[in-house]
């Protein structure tokens, strides 16, 4: 039997496949290119300071001293505050949306949250600096400093000047920003739990909370953590919302009301004016550190979410 194959069609098929394959691998090339370019751009600083770049506490472009610890500390602390606030609230909303709300409300609240996840981060930053900072600086932080600052041990966390900007403010703005994100993932993940499993638990007399705590959460544990990690990845790399409200001050302190700095804020503030030598190299090296950290976080997130997809395939 002879298939009727046109030679030009065959060639076109081949060309088409090569073309789409090449474009698909371009994503790979971009990521690899980004990683290599960052490592290359930061080589001068890595060569001079070595590991001291990460552990050094002094960042002084005038004196040519580059230690990124304060910026790294700020990024980690603000992201931690953001997750501390956003995860319980996001869990609450996801529980509400999947188990409690009537169906019309699920659609509306769900859509609202998805839309809010798309609002540009600079809007959160603007709201932070014009609305939240004056409010916290005038009313909330003085009270915290006076009353909570006096508590032994944990009191140190709530100390600082009443200026409104700082680690805590940045953490709060970040929390609001990642909240829709974490909520949407948790809701989607909760919806993958087989209805039969939940109904069986209800039939045995479980309360709503018991179904969520003992059935839904254990079933989705890996994916929920994966979703939280995705939120963490977003918080670590967020630039504008943090830059506006963190206060741009290099310091490492337990006091969360103090102004601080973050990796992204340092890059955003200094890059355009940095001299093309060591300063620019140091900022690109900072970018490399951020890239490496978020890569690891996203990798973990992917692995945990992948496990869910596999588990969901088995009855």
């Amino acid at each position: 039997m002879h298939a009727i194959v046109n030679a030009s069609d065959q060639r076109n098929d081949w060309l088409f496949k090569i073309l789409v394959a090449a474009l698909a691998w371009s994503a790979f090339a971009l990521l690899l290119g980004a990683a290599l370019t960052m490592a290359w751009g930061g080589r001068a600083v890595f060569a001079q300071f070595g590991f001291g770049f990460i552990t050094g506490q002094v960042w002084d472009p005038v004196m040519g001293e580059y230690g990124a610890l304060a910026a790294i500390y700020g990024t980690l602390v603000t992201s931690a505050i953001a997750l501390l606030l956003a995860v319980p609230i996001g869990f609450g909303i996801a529980l509400f949306l999947t188990e409690l709300a009537p169906s019309w409300m699920r659609t509306w609240v769900g859509t609202a949250i998805e839309l809010l996840a798309g609002i540009p981060s600079i809007i959160y930053g603007m709201w932070g600096i014009f609305v939240l900072v004056p409010l916290l600086g005038e009313h909330v932080y003085p009270w915290m400093d006076e009353h909570m600052g006096a508590i032994p041990i944990i009191g140190a966390v709530f100390k600082g000047p009443p200026i409104g900007v700082g680690f805590l403010t940045a953490g709060v703005v970040l929390a609001i920003m990642v909240l829709p994100f974490i909520t949407a993932i948790m809701r989607d993940v909760f919806l993958t739990v087989p209805q039969r499993l939940k109904e069986s638990a209800y039939a045995l007399g479980s309360t709503t909370f018991e179904v969520v705590w003992d059935i839904v959460l254990p079933y989705t544990r890996g994916a929920v953590v994966g979703g939280i990690f995705l939120g963490l990845g977003r918080a670590l790399g967020e630039t504008m919302a943090v830059t506006f409200v963190i206060g741009s001050t290099y310091q490492i302190t337990a006091a969360m009301l103090e102004p601080g700095h973050s990796i992204t804020a340092v890059i955003a503030n200094e890059f355009a004016e940095a001299d093309p030598g060591m300063h620019r190299s140091a900022l690109i090296a900072l970018g490399f550190v951020l890239f490496a950290v978020s890569f690891v976080v996203l990798l973990l997130a992917k692995l945990m979410l992948r496990k869910l997809n596999r588990d969901a395939g088995t009855p």
């Binding site: 971009l30 670590l236 955003a268 690109i284």
Partner: peptide
């Protein structure tokens, strides 16, 4: 997927360097 969630400021640094 990694590129999808990579910090956008890093992509800016890459574009600038390139």
């Amino acid at each position: 997927d990694i590129l999808l969630s990579a910090p956008s400021i890093v992509l800016g640094l890459f574009a600038f360097s390139l």
